[in-house]
């Protein structure tokens, strides 16, 4: 399963990277959302899959799954939500002000002089 997951994670990262490199601001945001899914799954896979019961002591199991990656991912999911929301609003405001979501047109002036 871990091997299969590794390849799946690779595919998610690949699609996310491709989206982030495109010119459309919306596709970039979707790309970051996809990227966070990939990262979460990567964290979970690194900790080992199905190594025991869910990390609840009420299960009275012999072995438990590693709880630490889960705690990390839980934090990451919520943060990713906040960031995605912020990105969306930035995109929305940008479109309102500039009338485009093409990143190449938003480059501003060359240099800082």
């Amino acid at each position: 399963m871990e091997i299969l997951m590794s390849f799946l994670i690779g595919i998610i990262f690949m699609s996310a990277t491709y989206l982030m490199l495109s010119k459309s601001l919306l596709r970039i945001i979707v790309g970051t959302g996809l990227l966070s899914h990939g990262v979460h799954l990567l964290l979970l896979t690194m900790g080992g899959l199905k190594k025991g019961a869910a990390p609840l002591l009420g299960q009275h199991a012999e072995a438990y799954t590693d709880p630490l990656p889960q705690a990390l991912i839980l934090t990451a999911i919520v943060i990713a939500f906040g960031i995605t929301a912020l990105f969306l609003v930035v995109a929305y405001r940008t479109y309102q002000e500039l009338g485009s979501d093409n990143m190449e047109l938003m480059r501003g002036k060359e240099g800082n002089e």
């Binding site: 869910a54 609840l56 839980l74 919520v78």
Partner: peptide, 8 residues
Amino acid sequence: HYEPGGGF
């Protein structure tokens, strides 16, 4: 604190 759930 005991079952799945919590503040988030």
